[in-house]
């Protein structure tokens, strides 16, 4: 655990306006709030599509943040991974109760960094992209432009399973944005996050048919948190937008109810 953080104290992350979407249950049953963190290029809308309402229907107050430079949040062309993690910790700490953080894709790495700065009740890493050379080599055509400051290329075919109608997939793909070049670089470098504070239980969820995250990468992340991944074969990278979006979210909520 790192106690002395002179750099963070001397150079605090600049404030930014953040988009937070929410769906809260009609009756508060005292369940912990969920905070969804979208991956690079994605905005809070990807969770607002199906998962927020579904979680709220099952009694969990659900929130989704757009990292700075994404969705409706303020533009941030120079944002770093630390700034993204700051966004997550800020929103988590503003919630009425200790939150469960659910991060997707590279947002799972952002979540892992945020877990070192906010004692989450639990965390879920969905199709986690923890970066490093391995991820880049698996997806050379996606990551190559990023080496030169371009955006990560995220074609619909890589993100969704074939079950999703082509029109819907194209519609989602056109709504994608991009992360800052610096953050993409930091993702490629793949610095290991500091250990989480408050010892939260961590669940890793993914699909063996994910074309961005390999099965081995999934298992590696799960092992780092002392478990095995929960797998949904046949689904694409964007679990929350795929046709069978109900299955993973239900499994996550079941896990939370059981571990509560």
């Amino acid at each position: 655990m790192k106690v002395i953080r002179t750099r963070e104290w001397a150079f605090p992350v600049a404030p930014a306006r953040r988009e937070v979407r929410r769906a809260t249950p009609e009756v508060d049953e005292g369940r912990p709030p969920l905070l969804f963190v979208p991956g690079f290029g994605h905005g809070a809308w990807v969770f607002a599509e199906h998962w927020l309402e579904h979680a709220a229907d099952r009694g969990f107050p659900a929130y989704a943040v757009s990292l700075r430079g994404h969705g409706e949040s303020a533009a941030a062309p120079k944002a770093t991974l630390r700034a993204y993690a700051h966004d997550v910790a800020q929103v988590a700490a503003s919630l009425p109760r200790r939150a469960v953080i659910v991060g997707h894709g590279a947002g799972a790495l952002v979540t892992a960094h945020a877990l070192a700065r906010y004692p989450a009740r639990a965390a879920v890493l969905l199709s986690p992209v923890f970066g490093g050379a391995g991820t880049a080599l698996r997806n050379p055509m996606l990551s190559l432009p990023a080496l030169f400051g371009g955006g990560l290329r995220l074609p619909a075919g890589q993100l969704f399973s074939r079950e999703l109608p082509a029109g819907a997939a194209r519609g989602y793909a056109t709504r994608l944005g991009r992360a800052s070049a610096r953050a993409q670089w930091q993702l490629l470098r793949g610095r290991t996050p500091q250990p989480p504070v408050g010892d939260p239980p961590v669940l890793v969820v993914g699909s063996p048919d994910d074309r961005i995250v390999s099965d081995a990468a999934l298992r590696r992340v799960a092992r780092a948190y002392g478990g095995a991944p929960l797998l949904f074969p046949g689904m694409g990278h964007d679990l929350m937008l795929d046709v069978r979006w109900r299955e993973p979210i239900d499994a996550i909520l079941d896990w939370l109810e059981k571990s509560a």
Partner: peptide, 16 residues
């Protein structure tokens, strides 16, 4: 002391 020195290290004060 400014916010980074004043807040609990695992519970940031609001950006606003």
């Amino acid at each position: 002391s400014s916010k980074p020195f004043s807040q609990f290290p695992d519970f940031p004060m609001p950006d606003s």
